[in-house]
């Protein structure tokens, strides 16, 4: 368990827990030679060709200075559609640090749903083992979160943090301000559980273990 976790912490793409059939999908990509923008269209219904590079998305993005590729540039790279650029997009830090704040979409004159595209790019980047290493903590957090609700149906903050710390190999960072949260009655030590938790496991089984991530 510990070894496995260490390995996953270093390369969360190895965590096949949430995306089985990696080989199968990989083979499919090679065979059909389908470009990422076509895949984006198939899986999200969004046409990247609509974007005319006005840059409003990047101008309004609260995180553009944290990103390695600006939001409008992600769309430009997708439009060009070369293998090299597709790879660049999928291995960007941008797609992981995006907060899904929806500002870009609200301001886009062409109503390009960039947050929806980004969501799909995330699952695709994991599937192809291309996730940016700098994003490991963020990916580990998402996985620890899903792990927590997969088990009990509800989020258990304390369990989430333990799971995250194991994955992130950072046992000493006080990620949840635990002592002050306890004195304020904000951290519980007994997880709440959905009675019909097998139903929740089924939902995971039939979605995340069974499809590509998009539509």
């Amino acid at each position: 368990m510990q070894n496995n976790m260490t390995e996953i912490a270093e390369n969360p793409s190895k965590d096949t827990y949430y995306s089985n059939d990696l080989q199968k999908w990989g083979a499919e990509i090679k065979n059909k030679d389908i470009s990422l923008k076509e895949l984006v269209f198939n899986e999200t219904g969004e046409k990247v060709s609509l974007c005319y590079q006005c840059g409003k998305c990047t101008a309004g993005c609260p995180l553009s200075d944290e990103m390695d590729i600006a939001p409008n540039t992600i769309l430009r790279l997708l439009q060009i559609g070369s293998k090299e650029y597709d790879r660049k997009v999928l291995s960007s830090y941008t797609i992981w640090v995006c907060l899904s704040c929806e500002t870009c979409m609200a301001r886009c004159p062409k109503e390009v749903d960039l947050p929806a595209i980004t969501d799909f790019l995330r699952s695709e980047s994991i599937r192809r083992h291309l996730a940016n290493r700098k994003a490991n903590n963020i990916i580990n957090f998402h996985k620890a979160f899903l792990h927590s609700i997969r088990g009990s149906g509800r989020l258990y903050e304390f369990g989430l943090v333990i799971g995250y710390k194991l994955r992130a190999k950072n046992l000493f960072q006080d990620v949840l301000l635990a002592p002050s949260m306890i004195t304020h009655g904000k951290l519980k030590f007994i997880p709440a559980k959905v009675k019909n938790s097998s139903q929740i496991k089924e939902i995971f089984q039939k979605t995340i273990n069974n499809n590509r991530g998009g539509k």
Partner: peptide, 22 residues
């Protein structure tokens, strides 16, 4: 009754159908 977590950011970051089903 017996509600479950909505899946939050983690679910829609990883899988669209999961983020709808929860």
């Amino acid at each position: 009754e017996d509600w479950n977590c909505c899946g939050a950011t983690a679910a829609h970051s990883m899988n669209r159908m999961l983020s709808i089903a929860l």
